[in-house]
Amino acid sequence: MKPAPFEYHAPETVEDACGLLAEYGDEAKVLAGGQSLVPMLALRLTRFEHLVDVNRVGELGGFARENGTLVVQAATRQRVMEREALVAAAAPLLARATPLIGHFQIRNRGTVGGSLAHADPASEYPAVAVALGAELELARRGGARRRVAADDFFVGTWTTTAEPDELLVAARFPVWPERSGFAIEEVARRHGDFALAGVACAVSAGRAGIALFGVGSTPIRARAAEEAWVAGAAPDEVAEAAVRELDPPTDVHATASTRVRIARHLVERAVVRAQEELRAAG
């Protein structure tokens, strides 16, 4: 028994969960898949007086395609994203990113919303959300809802613009046109490890999205590279533009310059792959 004591709450509705967050404020934390929070509690890197377990909130599980958007409820397991044909059809990048997350035992519990809310800079989903132009939907006690663009959601390592009393209820991924290409590439020490560097990208006629991960304190949108790509630049030029202003961390796993070189290579490869897929789509 390693975590410090806490009071356990298992609400069954979004409203009740938001009510608990409003009541306990900073002393409460949402418990979703627990695959990031429980290790932090076990290592006593953090402690909370109250844990609000959202696994029994029925409304928070599931996904649906609503016109041009794939809406994924926050507590939907990551594993669902790699198993469902509807997800692969509506958001191929989301489906392809999923097997790169940890191991299947982790994805059986880990949730889509948990990964986004946790905002680890080396995580795949935040970069996918940024590259595709997703929106995050947040709820508060009393039924108030707001949507935040992924671009504005991630502000630092493990930090988002969600307030402590806000519950992430859904991620809304726009369905890109039929004729699009997607790719996600990463380098990790071993399969399932967090990436040393990675990139998620999407391209269609007149539009491109590129987001890097593992190379800063948030997923990094490479706007100049997107513009270059749309303007017809070659993959190596797009890659050069994507890493020009990077300032990645140095740690035991890799130095900053190694990360930049890996990132450059990965962007080039991803752009080539996405471009090929776009061409094959007609």
Binding site: Q35, V38, F104, Q105, I106, N108
Partner: peptide, 26 residues
Amino acid sequence: EHGVCGACTVLLDGEAVRACLMFAVQ
């Protein structure tokens, strides 16, 4: 006891999960 080694893996409703990353009450 933090999700990395897999020694604690059990099946929950048929799916393999880390028993060290769940509370019994869950």
